[in-house]
Structure formats: C-alpha cells, structure tokens
C-alpha cells in the first residue's frame, strides 16, 4: 500500500470518529454513562432521606430478595418482592401469548391482501404503533372505568345493576398491555409472512396436508424468526412496563418498573432501586441475546429464504 492510500484510509477512520463524536458524547452524558454511575450506587449505603451515603454495602443487592428484621437484624425472604417479580413475569408472558394469539391472524390477514389494500391495513396498524402510549392507555382505561363506556352501556341496557369494577386489578393491566403492545407483535410477524412463498402452501395441500397441518408444519416453522422477534419486542417492554400498570393497576398491582420507582420515591432506598434496575437490565439483555442468537441461527440454518 502506498503512503497516499494509507493516509486516505487513516483519514477516513478519523473522520468517522470525529463525525460520530458529538452524538457519542451526548449519549455517554445522558444515556449510557449514568448507567455506570447507577451500578456504583447499587453498592452504596442508603441515605436516610433518599440518595446514598458514601461507603460500600451489599444491602441494595441483598434487598432484592431479602428484608432485614427491624429488631434483630436477621434476613428473611421478602415475599412481597417475590410477588411483584412473579406478577411481572406472569403478566409479561401472558401479554406475549395473548398478543401472539391475536397478532398472528392479523399479520397473516394483512400480508395476504392485494398490495393496495395491504398498504392501507399496514398503515392502520402503524398509527397506533406511533401513537402516544399514555394516550392509548388512557383510552383503554376510559372504556374500562366505573363511569366508562362498557359500564354505562350495560347499566343502560339493564344487564347489571351496579357498575363492574374492571380497573385496578391484574386483569386490567393485562388487557392494557396487550392493547398497547399489539402493534409490536404484528409488524415483525407481517415482515416475516410477507417473505413467505405462498407456492409452498400449494405444494403442502398438493401433498395431502389439511389446513391445520399446513399451519403447524409449514407456516409456523418458516415464519419462526418473525415470531421470535415479535415475542421479544413485546416481552421486553412488558417486563419493564411502568405507565400501564400505574394507570390501570392502581397502587396495588405493581410491576418491577413501579417497584423501582417506589425506591426513589416513598421507599427512599436508592441502592435497592439501582440494584433492581440492574437486574431488570440484565434480564432484558439476556432476552435480547437470545433473540440475536435465534435470528442468526434462523439466517444460517434452514433451506428456506
């Protein structure tokens, strides 16, 4: 390589860094950097009125699963915490399953329309996708409310005498999350189904498969990458959900996100809040790693596409 070529290459890399530098600086200042500070805070001593005191302590991490007895200082399993974790995982999994159950037929329906109709249906899915999450949560909440549409209608029709209490329970959170995260499932499923070669269906029917067998043995295995992508895209934000459980679950049906917030509010236990955040981040990272591996395997293996 000549000197001129070498200089050209070096200059190109240098310019790449220089141009990216301002964005990286801001991201380090207001996104990535604070995460590291949070790691440090999780190992500090909790302050009496929030914040932390300097000094090393495992209490934040221990506090995730155990609580210290006020009188003798012994540790015992914090069952209230466990309930919140289990609820978060349970609701996130159920949300993913429900959303897949409704999302797959929807994605299939959109993908099998003619190109013009497809664009319109797709646009109809995209609008809620970009619409304010809080507004959508409010919208579903207003329907479910005591003074909301469903109760008013049922009362008017004389089907019930007193309004049903549909808000502020786990069911409401589940319905709300399924409602707000549905587009996140439909879009990657649609992308996968759109690539699907419909000639394969003709082949399968020709080879004596029934409709159900075609779905089970041909369609689902081939669109698997889309299913994984959609499931992760729904599961990850569900696990970290904050707005939906707060608006629809009331104070009693906290999920991890609300529990974290509590530590920085009334709980005044910043190290515990920091440790909980790190735990959530680790779980989400594992889910994303699983996703990347599954996608890569899908790309390498398999004769199709």
């Amino acid at each position: 390589m000549s000197r001129a070529e070498d200089q050209q290459k070096k200059a190109s890399a240098r310019n790449g860094w220089l141009l990216s530098a301002p964005a990286l600086a801001l991201l380090i200042f207001a996104a990535a950097g604070p995460l590291l500070i949070m790691v440090a805070y999780s190992f500090m001593v909790k302050g009496d009125y929030g914040n932390v005191k300097w000094g090393f302590s495992w209490d934040g991490w221990v506090g995730i699963l155990f609580e210290r007895d006020i009188f003798d200082g012994t540790l015992r399993l914090a069952s209230a915490h466990l309930v919140i974790f289990l609820r978060s995982v349970k609701l996130s999994l159920l949300t993913t399953i429900i959303v897949f159950g409704f999302g797959f037929p929807t994605a299939w329906f959109i993908a099998t329309r003619n190109p013009r109709a497809r664009a319109i249906w797709l646009f109809l899915i995209t609008i809620p996708f970009w619409t304010n999450l809080l507004v959508r949560t409010f919208a579903i909440g207003e329907i479910l409310r005591t003074e909301g549409l469903i109760n008013t209608l049922l009362l008017r029709l004389g089907i019930i005498d007193a309004p049903l209490q549909m808000l502020y329970n786990e069911g409401a959170v589940l319905v709300g999350m399924a409602y707000v995260y549905l587009p996140l499932m439909v879009l990657p499923l649609f992308a996968a189904i759109e690539q699907f070669d419909m000639k394969l269906l003709e082949a399968a029917y020709d080879l004596y498969a029934s409709r159900f067998k075609v779905l089970w043995h041909v369609i689902l295995p081939i669109v698997r990458p889309g299913i994984i992508a959609g499931s992760i895209l729904v599961f990850v934000p569900s696990l970290g959900a904050y707005v939906t459980p707060r608006v629809l679950g009331g104070g009693k049906n906290m999920m991890i996100g609300n529990f974290i917030e509590l530590q920085f509010g009334q709980g005044r236990n910043w190290p515990l809040g920091a440790a909980l955040s790190m735990t959530l981040l680790v779980i989400v990272s594992i889910a994303l790693l699983f996703y990347v591996r599954a996608i890569n395997r899908g790309a390498k293996g398999g004769g199709h596409g």
Binding site: Y242, I260, S277
Partner: peptide, 25 residues
C-alpha cells in the same frame, strides 16, 4: 459506535430514567 447509538432502544426506559435521576440529582 453502533452499540452506543442504539443503546437507548435496548435498555428499558425505566432503567435509563432511574440512572438519569441519580446522575442529574
């Protein structure tokens, strides 16, 4: 560079929010 730029898409918002609360405080 790619990882840093896309990092806000991968980290749950509540985690970033808490980290910013701590740092900005």
């Amino acid at each position: 560079i790619y990882v840093l730029i896309n990092q806000p898409l991968m980290v749950p918002e509540i985690v970033t929010a808490v980290a910013l609360l701590i740092f900005f405080a």
